[in-house]
């Protein structure tokens, strides 16, 4: 990381931390460094309540409180579907209540406690890297 971007990300982290109360959304790519490690911003926000905007992905499990938030909508358009590279930036959301599916093309927000690190969900048998716990979500 060069000096400038370090200063920038530190400043951003400070800013975002202070703006958490104001529900300033955190963008999904900003949680990672280019080498896919967690960014300083992500590390500074771990354990805190954050808001992330995105789209609901088609659910992996029915009738649970779990879903995946993606930066761009999981394409429902037949033209983009085959060519679109599946983004690596996804966020596992564990909602407080059972999932109410919203159309996958609606922009939504999710607010919850940010959790970092590999976690194996034994109920679903899935490994996730980043999660929002106790989350609420709704149309952005």
């Amino acid at each position: 990381m060069n000096r400038r971007s370090f200063v920038m990300s530190t400043a951003m982290a400070t800013l975002t931390v202070s703006a958490v109360g104001a529900r300033e959304p955190v963008s999904m790519p900003s949680l990672y460094n280019p080498d896919r490690s967690f960014s300083d911003l992500a590390l500074s926000l771990a354990g805190r309540s954050v808001r992330v905007d995105g789209f609901m992905a088609p659910p992996l499990k029915a009738d649970t409180n779990f879903f995946v938030l993606t930066e761009i909508p999981m394409a429902v358009c037949p033209l983009c579907e085959t060519s679109a590279q599946w983004p690596e930036d996804i966020l596992a959301i564990y909602a407080r209540r059972k999932l109410r599916v919203v159309p996958y093309s609606w922009p939504i927000y999710a607010t919850g406690r940010l959790e970092l690190g590999d976690y194996m969900d034994t109920d679903f048998g899935f490994l996730s890297r980043v999660r929002l716990i106790d989350a609420k979500y709704g149309r952005a």
Binding site: L60, E81, A84, W86
Partner: peptide, 10 residues
């Protein structure tokens, strides 16, 4: 993994 699940689907 989660990413693999969505990746495979795609």
């Amino acid at each position: 993994s989660l990413i693999a699940a969505y990746g495979l689907r795609q």
